[in-house]
Simulated scan of single mutants.
Amino acid sequence: MSGITDEEKDELLLSCRYGDLNDVQEFVKKHGQSALAVRDENGNTILHMASGNGHIELLEYVLPLVPPSLLSAQNESKSTALHWACINSHLPVIQKLVQFPNGPGVDLIDIKNAAGRSPLAEAEMAGWYEGAKWLVQVMNLDDGAAKEDEEEAVVEPSAQDIEVEIQDADGQIARMSIAHPDQALPPGESTAS
């Protein structure tokens, strides 16, 4: 990134913060797309700035130009651009970040910041249930852990119930009990008196 002054770097980050697409385009014309991978003194990237402030048009312009690894870049607080978009309730932005074809995809949802929170947890903490719901709909459910739980719950002939535990991306455990098929009531019978 030789040839870029600190002032130009700061101007680029501010342009992304305020959504000034023309200034960002001029910066790319002058310095090339590789110069977009700059950070501020707190480790924030241009994606943090554009995403946290909901600048979808700017994001659509820069995403194809930056290295895909920039999508999962964490700042000093270990937050990604997706964390910032979730904190500030920008649905089109979180969709664009997660669905970007060359990026990390749904794996972004599992990255935890220094507070131990994923972007999903940040959306929930902000009371932004629309974004949290969308993230849950697209996130990876840990199929491997679910299969392990199923294998551990092998039914012995004398077993009454099956206990199943499933862990979500934030480490929370959901438990449920399933009645053993041999103990199930025949169709039409109920336990009600």
Results as ranks from 00 to 15, higher is better:
Ile109Cys: 04
Leu14Asp: 08
Gly43Asn: 05
Asp149His: 02
Glu122Ser: 02
Val93Trp: 00
Val154Ile: 04
Val28Ser: 10
Asp6Gln: 05
Glu150Val: 07
Ile87Lys: 14
Leu135His: 04
Met139Asn: 15
Arg39Glu: 13
Phe100Ala: 07
Leu59Asn: 05
Ser15Asn: 06
Pro104His: 04
Leu13Phe: 07
Gly188Ile: 01
Asp23Thr: 13
Glu151Ala: 06
Leu36Arg: 01
Val28His: 11
Leu185Tyr: 09
Gly54His: 01
Ala145Phe: 04
Gln160Glu: 15
Glu151Asn: 15
Ala192Ile: 09
Pro67Asp: 15
Gly127Tyr: 11
Gln74Gly: 00
His31Ile: 03
Ala159Thr: 13
Phe100Cys: 05
Leu70Thr: 10
Leu47Asp: 10
Glu26Gln: 14
Thr45Trp: 03
Lys78Met: 04
Asp182Trp: 02
Leu141Ser: 11
Pro119Asn: 05
Ser158Gly: 02
Leu58Asp: 01
Ser77Tyr: 07
Glu152Trp: 11
Leu36Trp: 01
Gly171Arg: 00
Leu70Val: 12
Cys16Arg: 01
Glu11Met: 13
Pro157Cys: 00
Asn22His: 12
Asn102Glu: 13
Gln33Lys: 12
Ala132Pro: 08
Gln33Cys: 14
His48Ala: 08
Gln167Tyr: 12
Glu165Phe: 07
Val62Ser: 01
Glu57Asp: 13
Glu11His: 05
Pro187Thr: 00
Leu82Pro: 07
Leu36Cys: 09
Val28Arg: 01
Asn75Tyr: 05
Tyr18Val: 06
Leu120His: 07
Ser89Pro: 02
Met49Ser: 05
Asn42Phe: 10
Gly105Thr: 09
Trp84Gly: 01
Val164Phe: 12
Gln33Thr: 14
Glu130Val: 11
Gln160Lys: 15
Ser158Leu: 09
Leu58Met: 05
Leu91Lys: 07
Ser72Pro: 00
Asp168Arg: 07
Ser15Phe: 03
Ser177Ala: 11
Ser15Lys: 06
Gln33Leu: 13
Glu60Arg: 05
Leu14Met: 07
Thr191Ser: 13
Thr45Asp: 09
Lys29Asp: 13
His83Pro: 08
Asp10Asn: 13
Ala121Ser: 03
Pro181Ala: 12
Ile109Asp: 11
Ala192Trp: 09
Met49Glu: 07
Lys30Asp: 10
Val106Thr: 12
Tyr18Gln: 02
Ser72Glu: 14
Glu189Asp: 02
Gln172Thr: 11
Thr191His: 03
Ala146Asn: 14
Gln160Met: 08
Gly105Asp: 02
